[in-house]
Nucleic acid binder design. Structure first.
Lengths: 333, 333
DNA sequence: ATTTGTTTGGCAACCGCTTGCCAAAAGTTG
DNA sequence: CAACTTTTGGCAAGCGGTTGCCAAACAAAT
């Protein structure tokens, strides 16, 4: 039979150390509350019994679970890896456990999973898209929420500051002689999509370029592929896509159609996902500090656990930057 | 102030329904134990109060946490995505929560994290490499363990059956006229590495080919890159690498050195990771049913929760297969 | 009608830890 | 040395469920 001896409890320690269980609890959780000598005695007994606090027993009276949920739309989306890693590391560092849940891009699954998980966590990091602003606000009433890919009034967030990366990218294209560029848009409802487009437009106009929006596409390889015809029709020499996946789809479709990148067409993606340098040529992209964002999301949550008020917090702008690789080049004359 | 009204408890329900709390507990957890009418009344009251069982309160007396830990060496390793997704989906389906933890390829972190997480989970899925067989056996004494990337005596596992994919691959190379091939090995201590090499060698010899082992490399892009010189020195026309990452590194290094793939050298990887089709040419690879393995690992764990004995279980062999893409071609004359 | 068996639901102890309250012990102060 | 303050550690009541045990209520069998 497995697990012969049950785990030691504070009662075992108390008996061994010859004190009351409450003293053990205090010695272990409230340094200073108990006489140093007694505390040492308790700690010694605890070590001897290989004591591990039972997180459930502790969570019951305190209501604190030391667990954070990270909900993502799709675990296999490479954008989330680094985000999750950053969060996991930051959480582990302070003794918190990270639960990750996937909504599979379904609002039903998203709500159901949240329902199930909510009682057992102290807070939630949301990297999903299906919930409405109202639902998120409502959720935020129950447990602290931090958003990593959108903004909602009254809710904390840690989102990348797209502007520096975009400014760099547009400048880079202008320097290469591009006059007419396009943006292959992602989901219309996406906050990030709108943010990227706005910055892009502003910067392009400022540098005297024209910029066309190739409207709403699936943010996937297919979506990028499907936008190629329209990019070509737009008659531009350079294009920025909503994300790397689309950029790669576009790049491959272009190559297949005999359009050489970057000679005939320059392409810039967003995110610097895993594999974006596997392509030929390797993709130039605007990099997001995703791991940092994940870590900061956890820190923000931690802060809100101890905050007096419910004031939403906003991540110190995480700066993006252009990663120049091989998919951008001089504009075709 | 957040969270004004506390969550409803079975006591609230009991009061509303006019029964004893124990009746509520039974009505909700042991269908049939209580009179159908009473049960309906309780359920109605529960719904009315929007009752959610407190997982911690439940875990205390039962010792069951309905949580499974999945420990991986490196979250950002694409091999783990699908594994984790499969596990997450399978867990969610039966109301279990998946906690994911990363050991960062460090045995210290691995032990520490395990220590921290163990008390709050019912079982562990291990996709790491740093623990010794003994440590894993010891762990298995405490909580059920399922391995997904190695085998340890007396411990359950769900590992891919490399043989069919490898047989296909070697046959494929033989059909293309290759006589001398090589295997770019991964970590020497890895069970999977050994398993792959053994099958490869057996199949190659059976088909009358020679096969060289390019010994132990880091299982990374760099590792693949670093093996190129030795592959070239081996004078082979085709090479199979320990994993896709290495295959891609090798492919890129070969291309950079003026060796054309697949004309001059055929390359086959393992795993079909995200992005392995981004390369030029797209990588031929032996695909693992990773998501299925992840799901089955959870199912195996679930079974062991209810098993009488501690007999280790072994996943119904998950079959691999060759995914032919562009990196394999006719052997150079 | 009496005995026996089965449902049904209440009682209360317990899971392991936290914490408010209190009294004894020890330390300060004039 | 009395009066007061601070430190220290014990007591016991929860936190929100689960479950063994038991008795009342009901059904079936004789």
């Amino acid at each position: 039979m497995r697990v012969n001896e049950k785990a030691a409890t504070i009662y075992d320690i108390a008996k061994l150390a010859g004190v009351n269980p409450s003293t053990v609890s205090r010695a272990l959780t409230t340094p200073g509350r108990i006489n140093a000598t007694t505390e040492a005695k308790v700690r010694e007994a605890a070590k001897q019994l290989n004591y591990r606090v039972n997180p459930f027993a502790r969570a019951l009276p305190t209501g604190k679970t030391k667990t954070i949920a990270f909900m993502v739309a799709d675990i296999t989306n490479p954008v989330f890896f680094k985000l999750v890693r950053g969060a996991e590391l930051a959480a582990a560092e302070v003794g918190y456990t990270l639960v990750i849940a996937e909504s599979q891009e379904s609002s039903l699954v998203e709500s159901a999973t949240l329902e199930r998980i909510l009682p057992s966590v102290d807070g939630v990091i949301l990297g999903t898209t299906r919930l409405s602003d109202e639902e998120i606000s409502a959720l935020n009433q129950q447990k602290p929420v931090v958003l990593v890919n959108r903004k909602v009034d009254g809710v904390s967030d840690v989102v990348p500051d797209n502007s520096p990366g975009i400014a760099e990218a547009v400048k880079h294209l202008a320097d290469l002689g591009h006059k007419h560029i396009a943006f292959v848009a992602g989901p219309a409802a996406s906050w990030i999509n709108t943010d990227r487009w706005n910055h892009l437009m502003k910067n392009a106009v400022e540098l005297g370029m024209t910029i066309a929006e190739i409207s709403s596409n699936e943010p996937t390889l297919e979506g990028g592929k499907g936008a190629f015809e329209r990019v070509r029709a737009a008659g531009v020499t350079a294009v920025v896509t909503y994300n790397d996946l689309m950029a790669i789809g576009l790049l491959r479709e272009a190559t297949a159609a005999g359009v050489t990148v970057p000679t005939d067409l320059s392409i810039i993606g967003f995110d610097n996902i895993f594999g974006s340098d596997f392509t030929n040529p390797p993709l130039s992209t605007i990099e997001m500090p995703l791991q940092k964002i994940g870590a900061e999301a956890v820190e923000t949550l931690l802060k809100s656990f101890v905050a007096e008020d419910d004031e939403p917090m906003h991540g110190t702008s995480e700066v993006t930057s252009l990663l120049m690789r091989g998919s951008t080049g001089k504009a075709k004359a």
